[in-house]
Each structure stands twice: as C-alpha cells, then as structure tokens.
Amino acid sequence: MYAFEFERPGSLDAAVKALQEEDAQALGGGQTLIPTLKQRLAMPSKLVSLKGIAELQGIAQEGDVLKVGGGSTHGAVARETKGIFAGLSLMASKIGDPAVRNRGTMGGSLANNDPAACYPAALMATRGTVVTNTREIAAEEYFQGLFTTALEEGEIITSIRFPLPEKSNYQKFEQPASRFPLVGVFVAKYGDRVGVGVTGASEDGVFAWKEAEEALAGNFAPEAVDDLWVSAEGMMSDLHGTAEYRAHLVKVMTKRAVAAAE
C-alpha cells in the first residue's frame, strides 16, 4: 500500500470536511477498498473512516419505508431487517462471508457500485432512494454504469430508503470463485407494481428488467415471464459465463425469486 494519513471523524460534518482535502477518500468497511489498496491500485492521501459516525448508523422502519444508515454492516442489515423486509435480509445474509459481513457496509457497497454487488439489485427493484449529506437520489438516477454513480466528490451516503414491498426475494447465482453474483435478481412486489432488479449480468451494471416487471405486475407468478427473454446483447461475458448464459440465468433467477417471494 502507498502511505496515507488515517482519520476517524466523530461526526458527519467532520467527515465531510476531512474529505475536502485533495485525494482524500472515504473508508466504509474497507472490504473492497483495502484489497484495492494492497494492489496499489489507489493512492489516497488520506482515508476518512466513516465507522465512528453515529448519523450513519441505525436501521428503522418509517411508515412504509425502511431506512438503513449508510454505515450499517451487512450483518446488521441481515439481522435487523428480518421480518420487516425478507428479501433484503436474505440478500445481506449471503454477501461475502460472516467476517466480511461484520465490516462491509451498505453505503460502502452502493458507493463503489461494483457491477456484481448485491445491494444495487435491491435498490433498483424497490426504486429506493440514496440519501447523502446534500441530497436525495432516486435509484434510477443513482446508478450510472460500472463503478460509477451520481455521487459527487466527497459526498457521503448517509442512508438508503427502501419502499417496503409486500413480498420480496433475492436469488443469487454465484460466480464460483469470488462468490459474487454471476447473476443476481431481486424481486419486490407492491400493491400496484413489481420491481425486478438485476445485478452481475449487464455491461452497464445493475438494471431493472422492465418487461418482467410489467408482466409480473399483471400476474405475480413464475409463469408470467415464461414468454419473455433477455437479450444477450450488452451482457457481460467472461471465463465464468458467456453473455448468453447470463441472459438465460436472468430469467431463471427471476422465476425462482418470484416463486420464493415472501
């Protein structure tokens, strides 16, 4: 790793200020950033740990919305959303491994926007909102391609707001080595609509499978997507799976998520 200064501010304001320094970078759980630093692929002048900031903590239901603090670990999300938001709890419980879940945070994951991260699928399916220290960003505006988001330099995700669905589920088909999703599909059913968020598959990162959303809104059953198919065009292709295979898995995982939704 290149050398850098380390700072652990105690408040959001202090963190925002610390991040104003040139090449300062926020550190969430570090489960992606630290391996990146070890490879010397990043050269921050300062790392600003968000771990000690009370404003980023807390998971709470607010009416028909679930608010998750940006600093919430995957472990906390898994535990504390059980019974409130089954699909999200299930998703969080399957990210990485137990030790990674004890460090990695939802804010960190969404800020990084790895094309194979899990949370983007949930945020997209629910059409949730990313809340930062300066504004609120709707899911569809937030994701802007691989590792790219609407976040400005120094902007911190303070919380994530998920409209609570009636039913939800997440199906992850794992890439055999990293255990990240080769394809992950989150399905969220609401009274008047259904959201289908797909991660791991597309060259543009997370996307909503709109045809399936429409079909499922009319009939929330696996058969509803039988006649739909996802184009392999624009899907990622690598040694773990071709574009055709990923496109195929999107449909299979969608059907399974619908069948398992609770």
């Binding site: 380390f6 652990r8 570090g30 630290i34 391996p35 740990s49 030790a99 990674v100 004890n102």
Partner: peptide, 15 residues
C-alpha cells in the same frame, strides 16, 4: 467479539 479478517482492517480502526 465479532469475527473480523485482520488483513482487511487497519490497526487504527481497532483503537
């Protein structure tokens, strides 16, 4: 009390 990978946390975070 929590399982943590010591290769993926800075010493200063453990203060």
């Amino acid at each position: 009390g929590e399982a943590i990978k010591a290769c993926s946390i800075f010493a200063l975070e453990v203060e």
